[in-house]
Structures are given as structure tokens and as C-alpha cells.
Nucleic acid binder design. Structure first.
Lengths: 250, 250
DNA sequence: AAGTGGTCTAGACCACCAT
DNA sequence: TGGTGGTCTAGACCACTTA
């Protein structure tokens, strides 16, 4: 049943909240509570309508909003499932990969270079929204395109949400980070922010990307948010000259 | 009335097209035909439902799709209008600006540097999807952020769609390009593709952006599509070091 | 006061998927 | 074959804008 929105609450009249939004928020609450885990089948629209005492159309609209937010995936004939990046036949939401390309080629599987547990620097703390000195895991990896090194990623992961991430990264060497968080920690990445800067190749770029001294590179700071709005990991990425970042705005 | 989808067409059974999509496409056709121009009020949902002999809910869904595509803007109590970038109280769709910033400051009004009519080079032709030698207009402008030059744009416009664009640019010096195409040519920009590369500052960047020799810059190739799917203009943009490109993926 | 979009209801039929 | 989501209908009330 829907919470009656606190009849005692005085600030009600103006921004009357649609029922479908209330239902959507309760469904998110149930995902966050662990009642449903990634890959689980959500009750059908008819079942949800009965459970929340709303019409099917309203339950439907709530589910549509969840789809927009990358929380669930609908499949005709099968049902609605909590989004998951795990393999198998079903239920992958939007992909955040595919961001870098070169000569219109997608980047290939990553090679892992380094793993470390550590504590948050001031910059880490700022990016992750945690305190300086909090535990973090650090991972470095390299991705290629057309058989040539293309981008190098320094990934920093929140230690409180993802204990022993470096060790698990080292053991599993996942090709998809979103999949890794999904399987290992039941965390669902639903949003990614990126900022792209111009920079010059540093020592590491020269070593691993084959950049020359004085050559320009793309520097990307990328933050990944989970369903709860927390930054789970951020990455400092360098892409060698020739590799590009692409985006479409509608 | 809706065209009955060619009853004689044999390829019907599998991909049955939803009615609301057919309605949406016909509404787009009417916009492209000039029946409605940017800023015009579209018939109400009830009127559309009657006109197309569908239920209000179906007409509504068609209009919702048009909103998603940046073609129309809905305002409760007022009605639905064709999207427009013209000033006034109403009807602005998504903004494609806001792409560049610095120290979290938006870029300011543009300064125009150069205007020219010309013919398409091979690169122009490729970007605009026209023949080499076709007429194009070229405009160069500079945008600042925090009082300092930040990005320089070379804009190339299709001459067949936008005759005398350089001359009009010179006369009007519009702050918004989308607004310019809207007012001058009744063209509605609904989608923008961008590719971001790393490059080194060239002579022009040193002159106008204050870049030093060997300093990195962002190079962006940006194509603007109108409602009909044509590339109306593309830009070659350089942003000096420190200015960044930002994007959120949901 | 009239008309609009925003929300909601309570049904219905269909295409698709798993069993 | 039964259940699912995808589509569609024909109403209804409300909040908001405009005249």
C-alpha cells in the first residue's frame, strides 16, 4: 500500500505528487532495500496495480519511469526484471561503455596493469564525496583499439561500499566495470558524469600509449553513480591523440 | 485521417506499427510541409484525436513522442506549440548550448570575427552530405568565459538550405545559432552530434585564445541536424586548455 | 469562465515468450 | 497455452493559463 503522504504534513496543496511517482519511488526503495536484486523478476503490472491499489495504467507509468532511469528492463512476454550487467540472455540496461573510439572502431578488452588498496587523497575525497583518508581501491588498466593501445584508466573505488575491490579486480579482471559492481557488490550504476579536458601526454602515456613528448591527449574525469546517488568510483582517463570522445544530444 | 498503410503492401504482418507512431509521423510531415511553423499552436489533444479518429490517449502518446524529439513543447493551460528558439515567453526546447564551461562558468556571448560565402571543400561536402563545390557560408566566431577567450568556432552552413547565411550572420550576429536558423530559415535544429579530439594549439588559437605554442586544445567537430535529418551546419571548434567539455549519460 | 495539458481509471485485444 | 508487456479506448477530475 502507498503511504498516504503524511496527512499531517501541511505543505501539500501546491505540488501534488502524481501517484505513479510515489509508486516509482517505493519500487526504488524496495530495490535499494535488497528485496529485489539485479536480475530478479519484478511483479507484473497487474500485480503491482493490485498491490498499490492503483490502476494498471498508473503502475505501468511508474515502471516506464524506472526504465528511463535504467533501473529495470522490460521484455515483452517475459516480464520486467531489475537491470543487471551480468551475462546471460536478458536484462541489460543502457551501456555506458562505447565512449571512446578510433577510426570508428570500438575499444577492445582491457588489460590490467596495477592494483592497490589505499586511502583517499584530497582529490579522491572530493570526487567520491568521502573523507580524506577513507579506504579506497585503485586499479589501472589499458584499453586498445585496432590492436593499438588507446586509453589508460586510473580507477578509484569507494572502499566502504566495495571492500577489497583491488583484490577482487586482480582476481577477476572484469571486462565491464558495471558488471563487476553488479556481481560483486550488488551495486547498480545508473548514471555517469564525464568532463573532457585537453592535456599533454605524461610519462605514463608515453610508456603505455606510445605518445610522443609534447603530444596532446584527452583527459577525462568520469564519475559513476549508483541508484542511491552515491559516486561508487571515478576514473582519470587519458586517451592518446587520434582517439575521440563522442556524444549525441537530442 | 490516417493513411491505411497501403492495404496492398504485402509486408505487413510482423512489424505492426503502433497508431501513435503513425500519427506522430504525420504531425512531423505537417511541420515539414510548413503547415505549422515554429511557435505555432498545435491543435489540442482532443482536436487531434478527432482529426485522426483515435482516442485522446493515443493522440497524447504521439505528442509525447514529439516532445521527446524536441519538435514541440507542451505547456499546461496554454497548449502545445512547435518548438522555437525565438525569444518570448514560450516554447523553447532542449538547449544544445551549455557544452563548454570553465571553472564551472558558462561561456558568454559570442564575438564574430569573419564571414564569407564560398564553395564546399571535400571535407565540407563529407560533413554536410552535399556535393563538392556546392555553395556554403562560413562564419568564424569567438566565445569567452570569465572574461577570457575560451573557444573559437568555424561554422560552415549549407548554402542550398540557407542562402546568404554569411551576409545575414554579419548583419544579425545572433547569440544563438539555433535561434538564427529558426528565425531566418524556419529550420528547427533537433539533434547535435559531437566528436572531441585532442590537438595542439595552432596559429589561430595562439592569436585569439591566448594559447602558447605546444599547448593542448580540445578540437570538436559538431554537426547539427534539422527535423528532416539533414546536416544544416557543422562546426570545427577549438577550446583552449582549461576549458572542458561535459556530458552526462543516464 | 473556458480550454488546455497532467493525471488517473477500468477495461480491452494483440504479439511475444516460456512452458 | 497462459502470462507478460505493448497498445488502445473512452471516459473522468484536476491545476493551470488566458481572456
Amino acid at each position: 500500500m502507498i503511504e498516504p503522504t503524511k496527512a499531517s504534513d501541511p505543505k501539500q496543496p501546491k505540488p501534488r505528487k502524481p501517484i505513479y511517482l510515489t509508486v516509482k519511488e517505493d519500487l526504488i526503495r524496495r530495490v535499494l532495500s535488497g528485496e529485489w536484486r539485479p536480475g530478479d523478476l519484478v511483479p507484473s503490472e497487474i500485480a503491482l496495480a493490485e498491490e498499490y491499489s492503483v490502476s494498471v495504467g498508473t503502475a505501468r507509468k511508474a515502471v516506464e519511469k524506472l526504465v528511463q532511469d535504467n533501473v529495470v528492463v522490460r521484455q515483452r512476454g517475459r516480464g520486467t526484471t531489475i537491470a543487471t550487467y551480468r551475462g546471460g540472455k536478458a536484462a541489460k540496461p543502457y551501456k555506458f561503455l562505447n565512449f571512446y573510439s578510433e577510426q570508428d572502431e570500438r575499444t577492445e578488452r582491457a588489460t590490467y596493469l596495477d592494483f592497490a588498496e589505499g586511502t583517499a587523497t584530497e582529490f579522491d575525497a572530493q570526487q567520491l564525496g568521502i573523507a580524506i583518508g577513507s579506504p579506497v581501491s585503485r586499479v589501472t588498466r589499458l584499453r586498445s583499439a585496432s590492436g593499438r593501445p588507446a586509453i589508460i584508466e586510473h580507477i578509484v573505488v569507494r572502499g566502504d561500499f566495495c571492500p577489497n575491490a583491488a583484490e577482487r579486480f586482480a582476481r577477476l579482471r572484469p571486462s565491464s566495470i558495471a558488471s563487476f559492481f553488479d556481481r560483486q557488490y550488488n551495486l547498480l550504476i545508473v548514471r555517469v558524469d564525464e568532463k573532457v579536458y585537453a592535456a599533454l601526454a605524461d610519462q605514463e602515456d608515453r610508456e603505455h600509449l606510445g605518445s610522443a613528448e609534447g603530444e596532446p591527449v584527452l583527459e577525462v574525469i568520469r564519475s559513476a553513480y549508483d541508484l542511491g546517488g552515491f559516486v561508487i568510483e571515478y576514473r582519470l582517463i587519458h586517451a592518446r591523440q587520434g582517439v575521440y570522445y563522442t556524444n549525441t544530444t537530442r
